[in-house]
Every structure is written in C-alpha cells, then in structure tokens.
C-alpha cells in the first residue's frame, strides 16, 4: 500500500469524528435550545483559544507548567515503581506485603489522597508531586512485576542451557524479554498520573499555573469558552503523549513480530 493511502486511512476516521462533533455542537448552538451562556459556539471557543494562548494566564504557559509537573512526578514514580516491581518478583514476602499494598493503592483513586496531601504539604508543589507519585507508583510496580513474570520460561530455559545464569541471565534475557509488557505498563501509568495531576491542580494545589488551575480560574470568571478550550488542550496533550507511546510500542512489538494490528 502506498504511503499516502496509509496515512489517509489513518487520518480520515479521526478527521470525520472531529468534524461530526463540531457540526453537532454548532447545530445545537444555532437552534438556541441551550442558553448561549451555558454553551458557547465553536467559534467562541476558537477565539478564546487563540486570544489566550500566550501571556501570564495563557494556555501554553499553563500546559508547560502541567507537563513539567507530570514529567517530574512520573519520573520519580517510574524509578520507584520499577524498583518495587523488581523486588516483588525477587521475593515472595515482598510480593505478599508490598504487592498487596500496590493492588490496594490502585483501588484508591489518587485524588482521594489530596485531603491528606494538603494537610501534610499544604497547597504546595510537594502536595501535587505526592499525588502524581502515589498514582503512578502502583501502576508501574504492578506492570513491572507482571511483565517479568510473563517472560516465556522457554527463553530462560534456553539461555540457562547455554550457560547463562544469575545477573547475566537477568540482563540478557529477562530484561529484554519484559520490555513490551513494561512499556504497556508505562503507557497506563502516565494516564493515571496525568489525571491525578489535573485533579490536584483544579483544587488549586501547587504554586505555578497549570491547566487545572486555568480550568478553575475560568470557572470563577464564568469564562466557558476558555474552560472548553483548556479541556481541548488537555485532550490534545493526552492524545499526543499516547501517540508517542504507541509509536515506540509499535517499534518494539513490530521488531519481535508480536504486533497486534489496530
């Protein structure tokens, strides 16, 4: 299949969806069924988007603020979560204790930590980081442990009969073999962390501006167009990060012949 055709096949359903949403939105707005104070027109939102892009309270600085927090909080969560995941595989005791704790934490929406975080850290950056961290760690830890446990035993057996053992076996077989599962885990963990971050920001936790803060301040100003524009930015950032993960995932799985066509 020629490249142009492939790109087109990828793009048109998505473009059609955006078009359909805009069309329905615009039609509803034109009929006047909903009070224009409660539902701005697509054009209003577009204007709010373009005129609020930059500046101190703009969308771009807010997006930047949120992304920096995400990067920082998620990095710490990935490092700690990965180490916990390894420990869960290495020791049954850790699996039964910390492993259970990780499952328990996953059952708790990370936003539920906010009240405690605010009491402990006040409305500070540390409180935001804590919530992102506590949301990301269990996802990463569990994904790490599962991906290692799912390494096919035939591969480790083959390597052992060739004389690989101990750290060599772990480094040359177990680690490379668990990469696809681990990457899928990260893809889930970032989404958890991103949602936790925005929730914390909406409750005005953290000093610098983020997209969550912007949502909250435009609610105060009853600026619906800006609220919807900010939501749009959050969604677009989400899609972009997810796409970046998928590109790497396809590369990893494609090379191994374990790609599921989508």
């Amino acid at each position: 299949m020629p490249r142009a055709k492939r790109v087109f096949d990828q793009v048109w359903p998505r473009a059609a969806l955006v078009g359909a949403i805009l069309l329905v939105w615009w039609a509803v707005y034109e009929t006047g069924l909903i009070d224009p104070d409660k539902l701005p027109s697509p054009a209003d939102v577009w204007n709010a988007f373009t005129s609020n892009l930059t500046g101190e309270d703009g969308l771009l600085p807010a997006a930047r603020g949120s992304l920096i927090r995400l990067a920082f909080g998620l990095s710490v969560a990935v490092v700690v979560g990965t180490l916990i995941g390894f420990a869960m595989v290495a020791s049954v005791v850790v699996q039964r204790s910390i492993g259970t704790l990780m499952t328990a934490l996953q059952a708790l929406p990370s936003i539920a930590w906010l009240p405690l975080a605010i009491v402990w850290f006040d409305f500070s950056e540390r409180a935001v980081m804590f919530v992102v961290f506590i949301g990301g760690v269990p996802a990463v830890a569990i994904a790490t442990a599962i991906s290692i446990r799912q390494v096919p035993p035939t591969l480790t057996r083959a390597a052992r009969t060739m004389g690989a053992k101990g750290w060599t076996l772990q480094r040359t077989v177990v680690l490379p073999a668990c990469v696809p599962g681990y990457w899928t885990g990260l893809q889930q963990a970032w989404a958890v962390a991103w949602r936790a971050l925005l929730a914390a920001e909406i409750i005005r936790v953290g000093a610098a501006r983020g997209l969550g803060h912007l949502l909250e301040s435009s609610t105060q100003d009853l600026d619906l167009s800006l609220i919807i524009a900010a939501m749009g930015v959050i969604v677009v950032i989400g899609l972009a990060i997810d796409y970046a993960f998928s590109v790497v995932d396809r590369r990893i799985r494609g090379k191994r012949g374990s790609l599921v066509p989508a």
Binding site: T154, R157, A158, A159, R160, M162, G163, K255, G257
Partner: peptide, 28 residues
C-alpha cells in the same frame, strides 16, 4: 546445573525475538 557443554533443543525453537537470527547465534 545446566552448562554450555550440554545444549538443549526444544519443540519451541525459543529464539530470542528481540535479536536477529545472527545475534541469536552470537548470544550463544
């Protein structure tokens, strides 16, 4: 214990999927 003086072939070829064919042999 297992050792390189005894190689084992399985019903599953158990090649490492992240390595090329040559790299699989190079691994050994």
């Amino acid at each position: 214990e297992p050792g390189p003086d005894r190689a084992l072939l399985f019903q599953d070829p158990a090649l490492f999927p992240w390595l090329s064919v040559r790299q699989n042999v190079e691994y050994a």
